[in-house]
Design a protein around this nucleic acid. Sequence first.
DNA 1: GCCGAGAATGAATCCATCC
DNA 2: AGGATGGATTCATTCTCGG
Lengths: 249, 249
Amino acid sequence: MKQPYYQDDHVTIYHGDTLDILPTLENCGALITDPPYSSGGQFRADRSQRVVDKYVQTQTKKGDAKHVREFEGDNRDQRSFLAWMMLWTNAARRACVTGAPFAVFTDWRQLPTMTDAVQAGGWVWRGIAVWEKPSARPMSGRFTNQAEYLVWGSDGPMEQWDNYPPGVFRCGTPRGEDRTHPTQKPDELMRWALQIVQPTEAPVLDPFMGSGSTLRAAKDLGLRAIGIEVDEQSCEDAAKRLAQEVLPL
Amino acid sequence: MKQPYYQDDHVTIYHGDTLDILPTLENCGALITDPPYSSGGQFRADRSQRVVDKYVQTQTKKGDAKHVREFEGDNRDQRSFLAWMMLWTNAARRACVTGAPFAVFTDWRQLPTMTDAVQAGGWVWRGIAVWEKPSARPMSGRFTNQAEYLVWGSDGPMEQWDNYPPGVFRCGTPRGEDRTHPTQKPDELMRWALQIVQPTEAPVLDPFMGSGSTLRAAKDLGLRAIGIEVDEQSCEDAAKRLAQEVLPL
DNA sequence: GCCGAGAATGAATCCATCC
DNA sequence: AGGATGGATTCATTCTCGG
């Protein structure tokens, strides 16, 4: 079993490829993650760009968006994207206990592929929840694509317990110094996503940790969590972020 | 050419099966509709999201037996639903001018099938817009499925013009006297959906008219519209509703 | 400290242009 | 012909800064 990159009372971080690490894990209580979308354009040329060129449109882009990091695994075509998604969703399910809930982020373009992939990976798909982003880029004559989606469900039967999270959640994206990862999710959003997880000892699993928003939110909610990340710099960023005190909510 | 069931300055209603009527139409300016979601009707929605036919799962973990049922079963109903959706989306596209926009309502269960169907029918899929219903029934331990979805795009290149409709729209469902059709959409919602249509002479096409909400909203916005409906009682209800005066907005 | 004006920003998209 | 590149564009929201 691989040594953790970072560990404390609540969270564990592994540095490495998700498909290598996942088979070594077991008894996780939930899968909550934000995988690469392999999206960002109608044409293959657009999708094959560097991540920063696709997704970071600040004026500082040419020159010094130094604090915004590149990330891997976002340049696949549709077929290989689906195949890869089936592999990791299946491996993640094996790392979880029966009945575990899952919630996976995706954008409109990959939503149908994502629902296929999680089901092919053995999960039961039970719905779609909506993240409404207040500041999206409008296009003339079209509906603004101002939402991202949370595909959710469970591994087999899903326990009912006393919690009723809303199906549509509205909040803005992190800005400026708060953002170290190009597609970083706000902590508030991750706490919402974690509402399908019952408070237990079994840790939440995030196989695409990035800058560690899922783990941070889990820790703040008093949950345990395990993160996997292939980029070492992101592991370091996340470890720093998690070493800080638990935030009062 | 079949005689209209109802006709006035702005709207025309045909009574009959959509697949019979659509080939007789041409030069429509847009497709805006709310097709049957296949819940409890002609097709089986409860089996709709099984993907075992597409992606075979080879390995199992202990305790997997109970999941197998989730993957078994018969995709014929889902296949026939998809085939039928491809037929009418294609026929509707042929009834429209090149560049025509489309917007089709669906629920979360049928969303992936719908995006497949419109693309197979020859339309360019450009996004998903969200209808947030404030009055959905919550489920314990789960996200509330409180949204329906508008799959939208165009037949080929889409003209840009001076309109920026929001991608998330919040409004309640009709109640009491206002509701004659079981899945009736609020007029306010249909006016939002029609914001993707440029004001022209070419009529909006609704191949599943139901109680006529699309036509009513189009007329109120000063647009022309054509509706098709197989149920005669619904045709009568819609005709009554459309014969009323144009509502001041 | 509060308020308002002006600037910056966003998992974007389109299209002309260049290889 | 078709892939790759780069510039222009849009508005709601948030941020910055000065009064």
